[in-house]
Design a protein around this nucleic acid. Structure first.
Length: 497
RNA sequence: GCCCCCAUCGUCUAGCGGCCUAGGACGUGGCCCUCUCAAGGCCAAAACACGAGUUCGAACCUCGUUGGGGGCACCA
């Protein structure tokens, strides 16, 4: 067990080669929570050493996603900090210097094998069903000969000289000690022909130089974990606390999310990409709560967490190493929960763009007044227009067939709607206290169940068979418009005769 | 093929040798509330992968099997 009194310093180190997804966001969240809880520092480091894979705009999207989630960092490419630069592409020389150090110590070596030969070796190994790894050709080269060839300008890489005997014991915070035979660890390339370091070297050097106390990363790094520990130990550095987070599996639980499946998901209104979520009607509070609980738990009954709660309650000791299938229906549940936890004003602001996008002319006062009735009725913000869009319509277009009351004839329906019209017209205005009782009495007089009468009026006024409670709805729409809509519906029914 | 990781309801999980006839949440079904729809409340069905061992006692410890996942690049 590593107990340290050193300051907590954690880093989120994405590569700008793709979009920020749920897995990355969760890693960043845990980093953030640990840092905030312990009064430590959260660092953003951009791992952009592979120019070939660099995707323009990717860094911007990652940054935007983290900001939307509210995971602010203390040091990073944009805000600077005492251990910069925070972009690996700007640290090339640093890595070369450390690679040289390993060579001087005899723990790394120059390799002149061509990619073509290596590919051939791999093919052969595959054919013979042998472990696929470097065959060690350049490992035996005498140091002075290698140095001479390098000086002559011969293309080369630098490889780590992994011990060939014995084993290494490494410690993962979730899984405990892991013992790996050294002979199963490859002589990985540390520095490429073009002089750029690979992740294995760059990340270890940066983590050390940036005084990272806890390396929190995905379990896909578990396989190269022994190599990384070897590198850190070769330099004689103290190891950070290693935390390999469980992987996220696709909803079926079978394997990782693929490109094609991500596109399929979009059709159902879901996405694994953080920057899609806002447009889909999700709110960051819910995203945080949901992903925090994928691989972490607090106790056996608490599941609703705000960011503040999470900062307070998060603990690395309650992380679960088992892979977790992504459960989007639970995401909807959390989103609904957090929407209901929002103030009316806050929800009003957040939901407005969705009405605008749906093409409604939004009156702010009307919008504010309908928020309380839509709040418990939506799981995602984008559902709001379909629930309450009619509030912003001048007229609605009911389906005449739906205007006919349940178990009633057209004639009876017209009679009932006329009576309702008269009654509402006689009211000074519509509100819950004054309109409900008279309408119920009317239903009784017409020998109808309240549901039958209310149902017809509902269709007439909202154009739909499903709506928020009728009286509140009519109160917001206003007496005048309500009467106009009922009149129109009576006409529609007349035409059915 | 090789290396590594993982294993409790459909899914996310609690459980760290006796509090377990295994608890919670989502989802599902039913009921209540009710002018429809939600929200809310109550109830129900639903799991320790299998086999050995250790122990007075095992979901919990050990080994094996099976299953799942990840990796095996001059990507990260």
């Amino acid at each position: 067990m590593v107990t340290s009194t050193k300051p907590i310093r954690v880093r989120f180190a994405p590569s700008p080669t793709g979009r920020l997804h749920l897995g990355g966001a969760r890693t960043a969240l845990y980093d953030y929570l640990l840092a905030r809880q312990m009064g430590g520092s959260f660092i953003l480091r951009i791992e952009d050493i592979d120019l070939k894979r660099f995707v323009p705009g990717a860094e911007e999207e990652i940054v935007a996603g983290l900001r939307w989630l509210g995971l602010e960092w203390d040091e990073g490419p944009d805000v600077g900090g005492p251990y910069g630069p925070y972009r690996q592409s700007e640290r090339k020389e640093i890595y070369q210097e450390y690679a040289k150090r390993l060579i001087d110590q005899g723990q790394a070596y120059y390799c002149f094998c061509t990619p073509q030969r290596l590919a051939l070796v791999r093919e052969e190994q595959q054919r013979l069903k042998l472990p696929q790894r470097y065959d060690g050709t350049c490992r035996q080269l005498a140091a002075d000969e290698a140095a001479r060839r390098v000086a002559d300008g011969e293309p080369h890489v630098i490889r780590f000289k992994t011990p060939q005997e014995g084993h290494i014991t490494i410690h993962d915070h979730l899984r405990g000690d892991i013992v790996v035979e050294n002979k199963s660890i490859d002589d990985y390339i540390l520095v490429r022909t073009d002089g750029f370091a690979l992740y294995h070297l760059a990340a270890m050097v940066d983590d050390h130089l940036m005084k990272i106390s806890h390396v929190i990363r995905g379990a896909e790094w578990l396989s190269t974990f022994p190599l990384h520990a070897h590198i850190v130990r070769a330099f004689g550095w103290e190891e950070p606390v290693w935390v390999h987070l469980s992987l996220f599996l696709k909803p079926s639980g079978k394997g990782k999310m693929s490109k094609r499946e991500s596109a399929e998901l979009m059709k159902d209104g879901y996405s694994i990409f953080i920057n899609d979520l806002q447009g889909l009607g999700y709110i960051p509070e819910a995203v945080l709560n949901w992903i925090a609980l994928m691989g972490w738990s607090y106790d056996d009954h608490t599941e609703f967490f705000t960011k503040k709660d999470l900062i307070e309650k998060f603990s690395l000791d309650r992380l679960n190493p088992a892979p977790a299938a992504i459960n989007f229906t639970k995401f909807d549940h959390f989103n609904g929960l957090h929407i209901r936890n929002l103030s009316i004003e806050d929800l009003c602001q957040r939901v407005k763009p969705f009405f605008v996008k749906a093409g409604y002319q939004v009156d702010d006062k009307v919008l504010l007044s309908i928020i309380p009735i839509i709040q418990p009725r939506i799981a995602t913000l984008d559902e709001a227009p379909s629930v309450a869009g009619f509030f912003f319509e001048e007229t609605v277009n009911p389906n005449p067939a739906e205007l006919v009351g349940s178990k009633m004839t057209v004639e009876e329906s017209i009679k009932a709607l006329r009576a309702a019209y008269e009654l509402i017209a006689s009211l000074p205005r519509i509100d819950t206290d004054t309109a409900e009782i008279p309408l119920r009495i009317l239903a009784d007089q017409l020998h109808l169940k309240p549901g039958q009468l209310f149902g017809m009026i509902r269709v007439a006024v909202t154009g739909k068979t499903i709506s928020p409670p009728l009286i509140e709805t009519m109160a917001i729409i206003g007496k005048e418009k309500v009467l106009m809509r009922i009149l129109k519906s009576i006409n529609l029914l007349e035409n059915m005769k």
